[in-house]
Amino acid sequence: MLYMAENTFGDIMDKVVVDLGCGCGTLGLAAMLMGAEHVIGVDMDSDALEIASSNAIDLETEMDFMKCDVGKLSWTGSMVDTVIMNPPFGTRKKGADLEFLSTALKVSAGAVYSLHKTTTREHVQRSAIQNLNAKTAEVLCQLRFDLPVLYKFHKKREVDIMVDLWRFTPN
């Protein structure tokens, strides 16, 4: 995701980047290591943010973290250059992925990179353009995620999920 964002579009190096739903900080920390000017990780899980902060220390890089529900983020206007995220897929909580995308498009001045289930491609495309004020919505590639049991609500030991890597631009 980040390699393509930088090498194809120049959206990481020397940019202000936010990682929405950052979890343990993987995407945000990768952006810092790739030369982002500043990165902010946003997540509502205190334990995940503690791990992300520890990972930043281990990698000897600085990244800011903010505890907040992405849907309740009160930033107004284009606050960052690039948003990167691997949002919840909206399987357990319907529309969770589009809630993240809505916030991302509101705070980004440049581009939003996001992963969404391939089975929702047409819905994501239509929602982004018609309802979320995206200027463009492009699938850059399709990936296969091997999703192991991570949460109590996961019923299978592991599942392969086809996922689209999207690049959106805000209006």
Rank of each mutant, 00 (worst) to 15 (best):
T26K: 04
H116N: 09
A134C: 09
V18E: 01
L27M: 12
N7Y: 14
L115M: 12
G77I: 05
G90M: 03
M85S: 15
D19F: 00
K152V: 10
T136V: 10
S54N: 11
I129C: 05
S74D: 15
P88F: 08
I40Y: 06
A104C: 05
N86R: 04
R167K: 13
A109Q: 03
Q125S: 14
A31H: 04
T91E: 12
G35E: 08
D146H: 11
Q130A: 15
P148F: 04
S102W: 04
M1N: 06
P148H: 08
N131W: 03
V70T: 13
T103G: 03
L143T: 05
K156D: 12
A48H: 07
A52T: 04
I161F: 02
A104D: 01
M79R: 10
S102G: 15
L140M: 14
F153V: 13
W166Y: 15
E158M: 08
V17W: 00
L147N: 08
K117R: 13
M162V: 10
K67G: 10
P88E: 11
N55L: 04
E6Y: 05
E122K: 09
L132T: 07
G77L: 05
K156Y: 02
D45I: 06
G25S: 08
K93R: 11
I57K: 14
S114W: 00
K93H: 13
L98R: 14
K106D: 11
E122S: 12
N131Y: 09
A56E: 06
N171W: 03
D45P: 03
G21V: 00
A30T: 15
H154C: 13
D43Y: 01
R144H: 07
A111I: 01
T169Y: 04
S102A: 12
E99I: 15
W75C: 03
V17S: 02
N86Q: 08
S74R: 06
Y3F: 14
K67C: 13
W75E: 05
T26S: 11
E50S: 15
S74T: 12
D14E: 13
V80Q: 01
